[in-house]
Amino acid sequence: MSAPGLDNIEVDLLIQALQRRHGYDFSQYAPASLKRRVQQLTEQLDCKTISGLIERVMHEPELLPNILEGLTVPASDMFRDPTMFRGLREQVFPLLASYPQINIWQAGCAHGQEVYSLVILLEEAGLYERTQIFATDLSDRALQQAQDGIYPAREAQQWSRNYQASGGTRSLADYYSARYNLLKVDQHLRRNVTFAKHNLVSDSVFCEAHLILCRNVMIYFSNPLQNRVLSLFRDSLVRGGFLCLGLRESLEYASSAGEFTPFAEQLRIYRLAIHQERKLA
């Protein structure tokens, strides 16, 4: 085994390499998870050490999409946390229905399972035709997979149960076709979704949203980065707009969380204060 702490030095150097060589800043990611992902990537790419991975980061730019995907994209499910989706459907959608055009930002959409979950609920609520969804991620490969909407069929049973528990009114199988061990989401569902590259670490406001979903993305971020992203969401939401986070996310350490009031706190659904004093720059 290598000397204690050596791997921490190597992870720091990798972060520097990614930043200086490719312009991606991972220095504000929570270190423990990032280290695990780096170790996994090191194995996947058949590197003996993290230092070996650094060499490839420096000299094989074509590897960058793999590396970004490996460092950022977690596993996801359709209708993960059905209680939250039920809350959206029953409590938030009726309020969104008052807008003639609904803009939704799915921030950190990974492989898109949650985007399609949302689309299905909007469709069933009769709101999808006037909805525009922006699904963003920093990984091009994740975005491509999200657009393709192809997932392992072994998940289908669990997803179907989740869909029912979310208050789905049909059968989840109505929305995909299964072949071999894969299921492909009905491509017609994609019609009002725009998939786009956006990095929460460095990019800025690009839309005026009525609802932002960013579930289990900031759990990988340090407190200062979480705070930055919450400010970004504040500036992107209309007054009274909604923000959905993962069920175990804590906002206690983010000063910019103060402008969000709990709407359904157990479900981590927040609302941007309606009477908000816009700060002068």
Binding site: A30, P31, A32, S33, R36, R37, P74, A75, S76, N216, I219, Y220, G246, R248
Partner: peptide, 22 residues
């Protein structure tokens, strides 16, 4: 550890969660 999340401890002893693969 909460159900459904990996629980990790950071160097300054605060907890972080992850939904990375099982």
């Amino acid at each position: 550890a909460p159900t459904g999340y990996h629980l990790l401890v950071e160097n300054d002893h605060h907890f972080s969660l992850s939904i990375d693969s099982r």
